[in-house]
Simulated scan of single mutants.
Amino acid sequence: MNIAINGCSIHYEIIGTGRPVLCLHGFPEDHEVMLHCIEPAFSALDGYQRIYLDLPGMGKSTPSEAIQTADDMLAIIQAFIQQVIKNEPFLLVGQSYGGYLSLGLTLVDQEKVDGLFLLCPCVKADRQHRTLPEKQLRERPQFLVEETEAAAFSDFMEMAVIANERTWTSYKKDILPGLLRADEGFVTNYQANGYELSFESAFNTVGFDKPVTFLTGRQDDCVGYQDAFALVPAFSRATFLVVDNAGHNLQIEQPVLFQETFKKWLTHVNESKEKGTEV
């Protein structure tokens, strides 16, 4: 499906019915990175409407001159919510830069967000200001790669902590297609000139009192985990996990743990609602 917002054509996919779950992918991937890791968690669950969108300039969504900054990007997401989810409360799931935008959305519209799940979230847009561990490769590849896949494999290895045939296959299926679909001109300009929200410094003032899970990788040398941990005091009901043997692509390096953690978050949200707490 596609919807027009501020000159952009926003592509999105909806699976299931019930409580909305809005899923925001990283940069510059597309919605498939979220769909492939999240859908297995809902295989035996009913009552959830999963909403996966491609951010402008990524996947099948086209950008417009209306998007120059992260504030503009957030405004597109807010307009999307108004048109698709309307006034209904929703759960919010953000991965990497999608986690960054989710933090921004939670700060400005937290009354609409019933729960927040952050997968390896970007917390500081400027890489020079991030607290990052040194690059580590815990499992080295023991397989051959086709010559035609050399460039993609090099990109895979830049993020890899567990580099085996399974994670390489998952990368090619879940992550690489979105990277290849990105609008290179838009992505380059946006990252250079508009990647940071104007109110990033206010993330630690959110005062969010609904269930939140931070799931981070101990060896994530892209966004790290320590900057995310520093935000925990701003979330009174936060669960924070830092996972060993996992980098920025934690969901493909530790898929079982990801599934268990995501399902536990859903349970936490539902239990809170049943007990009558505000979620």
Rank of each mutant, 00 (worst) to 15 (best):
Thr62Ile: 10
Thr62Gln: 12
Pro63Arg: 02
Pro63Ser: 05
Pro63Gln: 03
Ser64Phe: 04
Glu65Ile: 08
Glu65His: 06
Glu65Trp: 06
Ala66Ile: 05
Ala66Phe: 10
Thr69Trp: 06
Asp71Ser: 07
Asp71Pro: 02
Met73Asn: 04
Met73Pro: 00
Ala75Gln: 04
Ile76Ser: 02
Ile76Val: 13
Ile81Gly: 01
Ile81Arg: 02
Gln82Trp: 13
Gln83Ile: 05
Val84Asp: 10
Ile85Phe: 11
Lys86Gln: 06
Asn87Pro: 06
Glu88Trp: 03
Glu88Thr: 09
Phe90Ser: 04
Phe90Tyr: 13
Leu91Met: 05
Leu92Gly: 03
Leu92Asp: 00
Val93Arg: 00
Gly94Leu: 03
Gly99Glu: 02
Leu101Tyr: 03
Ser102Ile: 03
Ser102Lys: 01
Ser102Trp: 07
Ser102Arg: 00
Ser102Ala: 11
Ser102Tyr: 08
Leu103Phe: 03
Gly104Arg: 00
Gly104Glu: 01
Gly104Ala: 05
Leu105Tyr: 10
Leu105Ile: 05
Leu105Gly: 00
Thr106Val: 10
Thr106Tyr: 02
Leu107Ala: 03
Val108Gln: 09
Val108His: 03
Val108Phe: 04
Gln110Met: 08
Glu111Ile: 07
Lys112His: 07
Lys112Tyr: 09
Val113Ser: 01
Asp114Met: 10
Asp114Glu: 14
Gly115Trp: 01
Gly115Val: 00
Leu116Asp: 04
Leu119Ala: 06
Pro121Phe: 04
Cys122Trp: 05
Cys122Tyr: 03
Lys124Trp: 04
Asp126Ala: 12
Arg127Tyr: 09
His129Phe: 12
Thr131Val: 14
Leu132Thr: 13
Leu132Lys: 08
Pro133His: 14
Glu134Val: 09
Glu134Arg: 14
Glu134Lys: 14
Lys135Arg: 14
Lys135Gly: 00
Leu137Thr: 12
Leu137His: 06
Arg138Gly: 09
Arg140Val: 10
Pro141Arg: 05
Gln142Ala: 15
Gln142Leu: 14
Gln142Glu: 15
Phe143Val: 08
Leu144Gly: 11
Val145Ala: 02
Glu147Asn: 14
Thr148Leu: 10
Thr148Ala: 13
Thr148Gly: 11
Thr148Arg: 11
Glu149Trp: 08
Ala150His: 12
Ala150Asn: 08
Ala151Tyr: 09
Ala151Asp: 12
Ala152Tyr: 05
Phe153Cys: 14
Ser154Met: 15
Ser154Leu: 15
Ser154Tyr: 15
Ser154Asn: 15
Ser154Ile: 15
Asp155Ala: 15
Asp155Arg: 15
Asp155Ile: 15
Phe156Met: 06
Met157Gln: 15
Met157Cys: 08
Glu158Trp: 15
Met159Thr: 09
Ala160Thr: 08
Val161Asn: 03
Ile162Met: 13
Ile162Arg: 03
Ala163Ser: 12
Ala163Glu: 01
Ala163Asn: 04
Glu165Tyr: 11
Glu165Gln: 12
Arg166Asp: 12
Thr167Met: 07
Thr167Tyr: 00
Thr167Pro: 01
Trp168Asn: 03
Trp168Ser: 02
Ser170Thr: 05
Tyr171Ser: 01
Lys172Gln: 15
Lys172Leu: 12
Lys172Val: 06
Lys173Leu: 13
Lys173Asp: 11
Asp174Thr: 11
Ile175Cys: 01
Ile175Ala: 01
Leu176Cys: 07
